[in-house]
Write a protein that binds this DNA or RNA. Structure first.
Lengths: 240, 240
DNA sequence: CCACTAAATGAATGCCGTTCATTTAGTAGA
DNA sequence: TCTACTAAATGAACGGCATTCATTTAGTGG
């Protein structure tokens, strides 16, 4: 019965951004002698990178293309970011503000986790090239990411999780979410065994059988199944 | 009590390879006029790529470097593979033969899944750049991968899984495994919130608390926790 | 010995991220 | 108003990358 309590939440998985790209957080200290009309700043670079990605995908996100969008020479970008990796970090942190954490503090812990997990997966399914970046990104450099973790941690704590289990539980859920985000991008026929079908009878039968019965995308079925297992398994760790 | 039944299996996670790199499966049809002493073939390219990766990592795996290892001009590689992506595919499929599926058919379904999952994660934790490749790789082109799926599918089927649930269950486990493989590569201090610690009290407390109590790598704790939840949750789908 | 062919060659191409000496243009203080 | 200072933009260059292609090399069946 896992799937019946684990349907996708009805709320939009990707609600309006809570963190808009307006400024770089006041970190920029205006000092003597500085020209007032800087063409570039981190928030502008972030916005341009996001627009470029949505139009051309991540292969289209090059420093040259980014500079062209901003009507600037490629080398000018290096006055504001240290590397292309830095640009990816900016984008990644912004995306974290799109993840829906509104369920924490509102309803049950289970519902909150499900809403969070679905929207988290949906956001990064569109941005899988950033997933390797996240794995290496120290949260210090990523205020929006840190804000998300704070909200989620509080939600777990309030739900009765022992403090020392909170981080491992979140990490386990995130691992599942990132892997599932890749899964969304897989071609539909990825499991067609083709000419070797004869030598893999069990697998071929399983593939055919699941393909027949599916409502919606295969990736959604697997995500729903795994998320249900994780929510009930991890939920059992609560002490209250 | 999840963790007590979910300890890492005592068996070596990465046993001796069952599939050695010896030939290209007899796919090469010798025809009239062909010179007998070809310097290159797919298995040789795979072995060289693997050696290169283990010595220099994936940044070191370039077509030029690969050609140098094989004592050949870079362009010569293109007589045997269509692209660098093709090389990655060859490597990826070989790695699948290193995943330990010996538990299926031997002990309980739970133990078999745990052994498989730990070794699967361990193999790809050393090869995270291949994870995006797997997501797009049709199994047709990957005989070792297909062989693994066949063994695992049979294991699930014999354990009493309804046919239509087998593929989604495997996909859910794999998603968790891939995400967890990234987690292994994360720096230890990735969650140090640094100067922003004051504004994230719950998260900071959770991080400190888990860091204190950990036996072994943090990634292992999270993997153990999530795997336990998945195994018990998915195991409940069995009908016998 | 010839005709054929798989395979290796090496030069060239185009794109990439990045560097750096130089120029531009605004501002604060005299 | 002039001068000194500085952040930011410039454009040419660099080295590395995957990939292409006309050409050469060297075995083999007829």
């Amino acid at each position: 019965m896992l799937e019946t309590i684990n349907e996708r939440p009805a709320m939009p998985a990707v609600p309006a951004a809570t963190g808009s790209i307006t400024s770089n957080g006041g970190a920029q200290k205006r000092r003597a002698g500085r020209p007032s009309a800087a063409v570039l700043d981190k928030s502008g670079i972030t916005a341009a990178a996001l627009e470029l990605v949505s139009r051309k995908g991540y292969e289209g996100l090059t420093m040259a293309a980014l500079a062209r969008v901003l009507d600037v020479a490629p080398s000018a970008l290096y006055n504001h970011v240290a590397s292309k990796q830095d640009v990816l970090l900016l984008v990644e942190d912004h995306l974290m503000s799109l993840v829906d954490v509104s369920g924490f503090g509102a309803g049950s812990w289970e519902d909150a986790v499900r809403t969070w997990a679905w929207s988290y997966r949906d956001v990064f399914a569109e941005h899988t090239p950033l997933i390797p970046v996240i794995a290496v990104l120290p949260v210090t450099d990523a205020p929006q990411t840190l804000a998300m973790y704070e909200t989620v941690s509080k939600g777990f704590s309030d739900a009765g999780f022992p403090r020392e289990r909170i981080v491992p539980a979140i990490v386990a859920l995130e691992s599942f979410i990132f892997g599932s985000a890749y899964d969304v991008t897989a071609p539909e026929d990825i499991f067609e065994s083709g000419s070797m079908a004869d030598s893999t009878p069990h697998f071929t039968a399983a593939v055919r059988s699941s393909a027949g019965q599916e409502r919606g995308r295969p990736a959604d079925t697997a995500f729903s199944l795994g998320l249900g297992a994780l929510v009930s398994g991890l939920g059992a760790l609560r002490t209250t």
